[in-house]
Design a binder for these strands. Structure first.
Lengths: 112, 112
DNA sequence: ACAATCGTAACCTTAAGGGTTACGGTGCGT
DNA sequence: ACGCACCGTAACCCTTAAGGTTACGATTGT
């Protein structure tokens, strides 16, 4: 699995470009179909909201896709955001391979 | 992709059974290695906390895995929870195939 | 037996989702 | 052409959950 180079596509873009626009459906109607408010869908489409598990299930039913598809899009997006905007995690020191692969070690302190 | 039948393994169990216990490391030390508090790790291990993108990055560095691995575990778990404990999403009516596959339709109302 | 330390629960603060409401903009009908 | 209705979005509030700090019960070693 390679590191992601470019910003992953936000799920909202997929909804907009692959469904809303081709189907000529308004946000209002799509929201009604999904059983959510206009605002929630609007936020997602404008990349300011994210796909929750519940939302993924709704999308999967409406569009005959898998919920995992939508959650994967969101996961990749969130991961990229965390990689890019966070830095603390880079300070985590990897546990040495020989430690990870010897299961009988007696470790009695912080993993170095 | 099949529907998940049984409760997916919580990421916390993996951490506990595949790393904490085999390595004989305490929650305190592991938390220190990850740069988080004891509580945060404790909650995850006891399946009362979830893997955030930031946490996935920390785990990936510590254990030489991919962040996606951890987020996928969490995603499957969350999805199963939503499928099981929610019901509203089941009320979403699928958009008919012929509508989904004809991209030139003029839709001017709620998708039925 | 006591002291140190571990894991976990309680509490607080902060961030994010979602609904309701309100507003700007567009397009229709009169 | 003007007004009205409707759409998309921003502002506001409430609820939920994560994460840190602190506190407490349990366990272990001296």
């Amino acid at each position: 699995m390679r590191k992601m180079i470019r910003r992953p596509t936000h799920p909202g873009s997929i909804i907009k470009n692959d469904y809303l626009i081709p189907l000529s459906v308004t946000i209002k109607d799509m929201a009604k179909t999904l059983g959510i408010s206009r605002k929630t869908l609007s936020k997602i489409i404008n990349e300011r909201g994210s796909i929750t598990p519940d939302m993924a299930l709704r999308l999967s039913r409406a569009f005959d896709t898998t919920p995992a598809f939508w959650l994967n899009l969101q996961k990749n997006y969130d991961l990229w955001q965390a990689e890019t905007h966070s830095k603390e995690w880079k300070k985590v020191k990897p546990i040495p391979q020989q430690v990870l692969h010897s299961k009988e070690i007696q470790n009695s302190g912080q993993i170095v």
